Amino acid sequence: MATIMALQSSMAGLSISNSISNSFFGLRLSPFLPSSPSSIKILDKPCAIVMKLKRWERKECKPNSLPVLHKMHVKVGDTVKIIAGREKGKVGEITQIFRHNSTVIVKDMNLKTKHMKSREQGEPGQIVKIEAAIHSSNVMLYSKEQQVASRVGHKILEDGTRVRYLIKTGEVIDSAENWKKVIKERTKAKE
Rank of each mutant, 00 (worst) to 15 (best):
K184Q: 10
S21Y: 03
N18G: 04
E131D: 09
P46C: 04
L166D: 01
M11F: 06
S36C: 12
I105G: 02
S38W: 03
K184D: 08
K90Y: 00
V182W: 13
K181D: 00
H115M: 09
G160H: 02
C47D: 14
N18F: 03
T161H: 05
K155P: 09
A132M: 04
L157E: 05
V91M: 01
V80E: 10
C47L: 15
N22I: 14
G170V: 03
L14T: 01
E131Q: 07
N138D: 12
K52N: 04
E93N: 15
L53S: 04
I167L: 03
Q96S: 03
E171Q: 13
A132G: 10
T169V: 01
T79Y: 09
S19L: 13
I156D: 12
P124L: 05
V152W: 05
E57D: 07
I49E: 13
D174K: 10
A176I: 03
C61H: 05
V152E: 13
G122W: 07
A2H: 07
K62R: 11
S10L: 08
E60G: 06
A6G: 14
A149C: 04
R151A: 10
K168E: 14
I167F: 01
V148C: 00
T103D: 02
R119Q: 08
N101Y: 13
R119F: 10
K71P: 14
E145H: 10
P46D: 08
V68Y: 01
S175V: 10
G153I: 04
M11W: 04
E87D: 12
I134F: 08
W179A: 00
E120P: 02
I105R: 08
V50A: 11
K114P: 02
Q126F: 10
F24P: 00
V50N: 12
P37W: 06
N18Q: 08
I167S: 02
A6H: 14
L111Y: 04
K45E: 01
P34F: 03
A48Q: 14
V128I: 11
Q146Y: 04
P34M: 03
E120Y: 11
I94Q: 05
M140L: 11
K81Q: 14
E145I: 09
I83E: 09
P31D: 02
H73D: 13
S38H: 09
G122A: 07
A2N: 10
K62C: 05
E131A: 08
K54R: 15
S35A: 03
D174L: 09
K181P: 00
S19F: 10
